[in-house]
Design a protein around this nucleic acid. Structure first.
Length: 174
DNA sequence: AGCAAGATCGGT
DNA sequence: CCGATCTTGCTG
């Protein structure tokens, strides 16, 4: 439908993470072209959030999170998986939304593999990019929330924040 | 320079 | 539950 503009991404990560499920992630590289409905997300909110990479300070890796909302923060973990994150909020307020699932692809590592997303997408701007963006779909699925996955090290209260969002009745829903 | 841990996944 | 696999960031 219509491409999402900058203002949408300037909201905080929790707000954006709650609105993304149901929207389409559109990718148009030479190899992969298609629309995938976003099914699951997680918010990482600023330097206070101990689960957010930015909580350990501004480093070369986390630099993209300090860009204005709408850019991508891509990083490599566990020696094999690329993680796709959408930066949110104004410049210099490090926040991002991890895309954990899209239609036909469950899991943050599997979806980047499936869509051909790698480090070359780091810092890409969803508002102006010619190969990746997000579209409003008009559909308003019911979104449920729960605690984030794989961040036990962050401790309380971060471990209990209900900042994981997903479409009800989707794979991964409990 | 060395090392421990990681926003994961798939197989035991 | 455990190993694969390698980048990052911290320690010394």
């Amino acid at each position: 439908m219509s491409r999402v503009d900058r203002s949408f991404f300037l909201a905080d990560a929790v707000t954006v993470a709650g609105l993304l499920p149901g929207m389409d992630l559109v990718i148009g590289t030479g190899k992969k072209t298609g629309k995938y409905m976003i099914t699951e997300t997680e918010a990482y909110l600023g330097d206070d959030d101990r689960a957010c990479h930015a909580s350990r300070g501004r480093t070369p890796r986390t630099e993209p999170m300090y860009m204005p909302g709408g850019h991508l923060y891509i990083y490599f973990v566990y020696g094999m998986h690329w993680m796709l994150n959408v930066v949110t909020g104004p410049q210099d307020f490090p926040q991002a939304v991890l895309i954990r699932g899209v239609s036909q692809h469950s899991g943050p590592g599997r979806l980047t593999r499936g869509l051909g997303i790698d480090g070359s997408f780091n810092c890409e701007d969803l508002v102006s990019s010619g190969r990746i963006w997000i579209e409003e779909t008009g559909c308003r699925p019911e979104v449920i929330s729960g605690p984030r996955v794989g961040i036990d090290y962050a401790g309380e209260p971060w471990i209990s924040k209900p900042w994981r969002f997903m479409i009800r009745n989707q794979k991964g829903t409990k």
